[in-house]
């Protein structure tokens, strides 16, 4: 690929204008899915084409981009997307949450609180929160128009009847500003409380499904629940074995074939930062503490 043959941030200007218009309408109608003419990208559908198009439409030459997948900067798809923008937009990149002005993410919200000078771009596989209850787009569109969300409550209630709890642990549906029910992308429900009242702009791109939506800063975002079964942001009941963090989302790592396992922060930058500050965990090497 000869980079010079492609426009700044890959997409042509007409395509960027189209995406930019959709993003503005998305911000004006929080949680509503704006249809957009998603383009075929040089990476497969389902691998972040929506997020990549949103990022491409937002990046300026002055930006610093961070890309994470499962919370980590070094997962293969995150590396691949970061390289794509290094080549096509020539922007600076960083693995540090605080250093980035645009963060593209798949499946996590960083642990460190984001600021007003940041944009968080989510990759979304299935933007329609009602899709698994009603497969037809023509029907779900009507349900949103009529604010008809009974089906969703029935589903959650059936969970409680069968399992004694709401059996959704990621992509947990939320209500935005008391109006649209929205899929927050497959983030663990642990991350849901960070969606509301965030200082940063949150943009969501679903390439294959051709939808863009947004949550402006300081917006009310409520996870669906029932009075007698309130929403609970859960995580593994452990501390990070490397940095000792008690309130970060953890990955479980199998360490041997005898049931040995350890728990480490899924947000690799957060964990590294804490270790650099001298925090230690159960399995930190001896003498690691500064």
């Amino acid at each position: 690929m000869s980079e010079a043959a492609y426009n700044f941030a890959y997409l042509d200007e007409a395509t960027k204008r189209m995406i930019r218009r959709a993003l503005l309408k998305g911000l004006a109608i929080p949680g509503y899915q704006v249809p957009f003419a998603s383009r075929e990208m040089p990476m497969p559908y389902g691998w972040g084409t929506g997020g990549v198009q949103v990022t491409a439409a937002c990046l300026t030459p002055e930006d610093c981009l961070k890309v994470i997948d499962q919370g980590a900067d070094d997962t293969t798809n995150a590396v691949s997307i970061r390289k794509f923008f290094e080549r096509t937009a020539g922007v600076a990149t960083s693995e540090h949450t605080a250093a980035a002005s645009v963060i593209q993410t798949r499946h996590r919200i960083p642990e460190q609180a984001l600021t007003e000078r940041q944009i968080l771009v989510y990759q979304v596989p299935i933007p329609e929160p009602l899709r698994f209850l009603e497969p037809r787009e023509s029907e779900t569109r009507k349900m949103h128009a009529l604010e008809e969300y009974g089906l969703m409550h029935v589903k959650l209630y059936e969970d409680i009847a069968r399992h004694g709890a709401i059996a959704t642990s990621y992509a947990y549906p939320v209500r935005v500003e008391g109006r649209y029910v929205m899929d927050p992308s497959p983030i663990p429900k642990f991350d849901n409380p960070k969606l509301g009242g965030m200082a940063a702009i949150q943009l969501f791109g679903a390439g294959r499904e051709q939808r863009i939506y947004a949550v402006p800063p300081y917006t009310r975002v409520v996870s669906l629940d029932f009075e007698d079964h309130p929403f609970e942001a859960s995580k593994a009941a452990h501390d990070c074995d490397l940095c000792g963090a008690a309130h970060s989302y953890l990955d479980e790592v199998i360490t041997d074939d005898k049931g040995g396992r350890m728990f480490v922060c899924s947000d690799t930058d957060f964990c590294a930062m804490r270790r650099a500050e001298g925090h230690v965990g159960r399995l930190s090497p001896k003498g690691a503490a500064a």
């Binding site: 960027k16 911000l27 937002c58 007003e116």
Partner: peptide, 14 residues
């Protein structure tokens, strides 16, 4: 256009 859009985006978001 990218810089101008960011101004529009920030304006609409805030």
């Amino acid at each position: 256009a990218a810089r101008a859009f960011r101004a529009c985006l920030e304006a609409m978001a805030r």
